[in-house]
Design a binder for these strands. Sequence first.
DNA 1: AAAAACACCTAAAACGTTTTCGTACAATTG
DNA 2: CAATTGTACGAAAACGTTTTAGGTGTTTTT
Lengths: 339, 339
Amino acid sequence: MKRKITLKHIARELGVSISTVSKALKNSEEIGSDTKEKVQAFAKLYNYKPNNIAISLKNKRTKNIGVIIPDIVHHFFTTVFRGIEKYANAKGYNVIVCVSDESFDKEVINMELLANGSIDGFIMALSSGTQLKNDYNHLKEVTEQGIPLVLFDRVAEDIKCDKVYINDRKGAYNAVTKFINDGRKRIALITTDDYISVSRERAVGYTQALSDNGIVFNENLILKLPSMEIDEKMIEDFFKREKVDAVLSVNEIFAIHSMRLVQSKGLEIPEDISFIGFTDGLLSKYASPGLTAIAQHGEQMGEIAAEILIEKVENDMEEETFVTKILEPTIIERGSTVN
Amino acid sequence: MKRKITLKHIARELGVSISTVSKALKNSEEIGSDTKEKVQAFAKLYNYKPNNIAISLKNKRTKNIGVIIPDIVHHFFTTVFRGIEKYANAKGYNVIVCVSDESFDKEVINMELLANGSIDGFIMALSSGTQLKNDYNHLKEVTEQGIPLVLFDRVAEDIKCDKVYINDRKGAYNAVTKFINDGRKRIALITTDDYISVSRERAVGYTQALSDNGIVFNENLILKLPSMEIDEKMIEDFFKREKVDAVLSVNEIFAIHSMRLVQSKGLEIPEDISFIGFTDGLLSKYASPGLTAIAQHGEQMGEIAAEILIEKVENDMEEETFVTKILEPTIIERGSTVN
DNA sequence: AAAAACACCTAAAACGTTTTCGTACAATTG
DNA sequence: CAATTGTACGAAAACGTTTTAGGTGTTTTT
């Protein structure tokens, strides 16, 4: 087993000091060219690579970014992650991922662990548990220690940090407006509980589009599913009870489920009823008919988040100025709406 | 900005030595109880947490696991990742993810970077680039340095390390056997190029099941798509050219695509043609009809990989004994096959 | 009363770097 | 030839821990 070689080994072997070796490897002007050559040759021969941990300790920089997301088996979050990873890697950073599992406690634990020197900054989307609890002390602690934090997608107003998310309100607004322009009158919204910031925003957009177009808001046309788990019965009851000709869903799964349900009842999509779903994921793409989707530009979001974070990390500016970047959603039209 | 407090700060503030503080916080018997109390109270008050990097340097243990996967926006890999993360976290480990993007070069770069002290061990699935090139020197280098390595799913025979994957051959075998028992005669296989280990294995299982059941192998019934990108035309030509009554696909996407194609041609699933696809992901679940799938037990795979790795890391046994754990695939029956 | 034991604490090394400062010697200057 | 400058290197501190090996001063033992 070839153990990793250190500066000390090289120094001892070559009969010079550790500092000389260090400088020689950095091609310092201080060191004579013959010594430099000797050291560099030896280092290459034994494949010397500096120890990241030692450098981190010295520099107080880890070149690691902590990413905390609610779930990893999740198309949108992984898309964002891809953007983060791509940008970070290009800048020489590695990414440590922790999954909060939508739990406040796990979010706190993971954050505290990473905050003790393991990372230079955080990129995260809040867990639903945290949004429900509305307790952001763990975030505050971290930022007060001077650790940069960028929130994406699931953000919270009252945290002072950088943020990047899409204009969910506008996404919903545009979708509903499209329904109306297509002549739809009874437009449903399938959503989750309100404490998730994005759901709340989407509901606002939905309502606003209706009122801007003179359609009376009808509470009954909103179906709130209590969890991400599909409640077949609630959906079935909803469609049995309400006559709707368009459905906006805050996620793909609710949409696909509803589509299959109404299809099984003999309705035609999009002739009798059309659908638009948030998140342009796999399901939307491969459903039949394809589900018109509101793209959230996850990869771009990730890249921007990483860019903002790394900028902060590298020029640790004391002045506390925070940016909020809001991306514009895009509607990807597919077969579930009339073109 | 509250900077992180260190042992040195506490020592200076309390007029004791650093070692006293360190021991007091560990509740060492060497320290008098009043001193201990004083130190502990002070530490709690100022929220002292030891610096991970310093501890890593001292212990030569990072409590980080490096995970390298070909892609992150990928249901199966994220499922495995979830298993890894869950187990690792429970054991106090964090996970650093790098995405090889199916590229040999990126895999090498990421590995070398992490190997310089950032992690205690690797869990990875080989990139297709690496499998194509058949060059495993970067893996060898790492293991020779005594860094434990666990390969999952995309493994390679000639690497000496721990491995965990499912019996792909058997998965395909069982699927084809089921087709035959259901009375199917012209059974197609849609796959990728052979250099991906799992595809190769699945093809073997396919062929074996045919021959074990006295069905003549027909080369024309195998469709090899050159890449993960869907080539609509190739699929369409295939189904135009060959009359098939059952399709085994090495992934969901090829299967779903084919299903939609044959449906658009007026065929009924599963009456006229039935489908089974590898990986029990979202698409299989939400397709219509649902796609009968071969589950790969990703989460379990991840947990096992993490368990093996952490065991190795914590009891760094010099004896080089490697385990290979092969999981049994399970068929999840849905509407795309006759029950 | 000297020796031994004990309780409590500190100095210092170690982990592997980087970097500042110092110094020995040679070469140049006035 | 003394003073200055320059070249090439080394010692040591620093990052924040843990841990070993002392080292006090008090108390117990004989």
